[in-house]
Amino acid sequence: MKIECPFCGKRDHSEFTYKGDATVARPDHSEQDLDRWNDYVFQRTNPKGAHKEYWHHTNGCRKFLIVERDTISHKINSVTLVQGGGK
């Protein structure tokens, strides 16, 4: 599978590290509610089909990406930097 990093170009997936579900919202740093943190850290829906996930370009620019990928066909629909920046 190849991932097209917006900065580095198309690279083999071995350059990246999967970093989890990008559809879950992280609670605020000051959030005290344990249930909210429990949901964020442990609960996942594991959908079939299109899924948004974080990937870290570990062996490249080391930026975090949001990849929209089909969990069945591996087809990638879009790749964006979490933080736009640079060229």
Partner: peptide, 17 residues
């Protein structure tokens, strides 16, 4: 670019880096 000494090369290795 303004630096007088041109004995260097700039590599753009990552966004903002």
């Amino acid at each position: 670019t303004q630096h007088q000494d041109k004995r260097f090369l700039v590599l753009h290795t990552a966004p903002d880096r």
